[in-house]
């Protein structure tokens, strides 16, 4: 057993040495001198702590914050505004500004395909932030636009999805005058 384990560790080290060779052009820093540790228990203990912390956080939030449950679904009464879930509000925001074919179909498809192709479009082999200014600025811009659109859709779109500075998350939505 002992020799089997040692053999496997040695094999892994060989694989790793090869990986570093393959990667020599893209790795920003040679990590072969970094301290090697056994992942159990140190690494696994860290993961465990993260999981426990997340569980505690969820339990506390779930005790304090009640998940929304409005009146029963009624196909005959349309709330105004009708909003998509928050992570799609960026798309809904685009739909309110651009032709639907562009905002609802062409644009999201383009973004998804672009995302998958990112590693092939980014020809810069470096991973050092100071050498990737363009990539980082473009990505930051993309994230900023997404976040801004979601915030606008959530907080600043009221009746008829018209711009409204006073719109506050969780305001009772109205269905033709009556609260839903």
């Amino acid at each position: 057993m002992a020799t089997e384990a040692t053999d496997r560790i040695a094999a892994r080290q060989r694989v790793e040495a090869r990986r570093r060779q393959v990667e020599a052009s893209t790795t920003i820093r040679d990590d072969s001198e970094d301290e090697m540790i056994v992942s159990f228990p140190e690494f696994i203990f860290k993961e465990f702590i993260a999981a426990v912390a997340m569980t505690a956080f969820l339990v506390v939030v779930s005790i304090v914050l009640q998940a929304p449950l409005l009146g029963q679904a009624n196909p005959g009464v349309t709330p105004n505004p009708s909003k998509a879930p928050w992570y799609f509000l960026g798309l809904q925001e685009l739909l309110s500004r651009f032709p639907p074919l562009m905002a609802g179909v062409a644009f999201p498809t383009f973004v998804i395909v672009l995302m998958i192709l990112v590693p092939f479009l980014d020809r810069n082999p470096s991973r050092r932030p100071s050498e990737r200014k363009v990539a980082i600025i473009l990505f930051a811009l993309y994230m900023a636009i997404v976040v801004a659109l979601v915030i606008i859709g959530t907080f600043f779109r009221g009746h008829e999805f018209i711009w409204n500075w006073g719109w506050v998350l969780g305001n009772p939505q109205t269905c033709g005058g009556a609260a839903c």
Binding site: A73, F88, L91
Partner: peptide
């Protein structure tokens, strides 16, 4: 949950 929030959010989402 089949409340007013659900069906109208999904109506808007699927309309896209």
């Amino acid at each position: 949950p089949w409340d007013q929030l659900s069906i109208w959010a999904v109506t808007v989402g699927t309309n896209m």
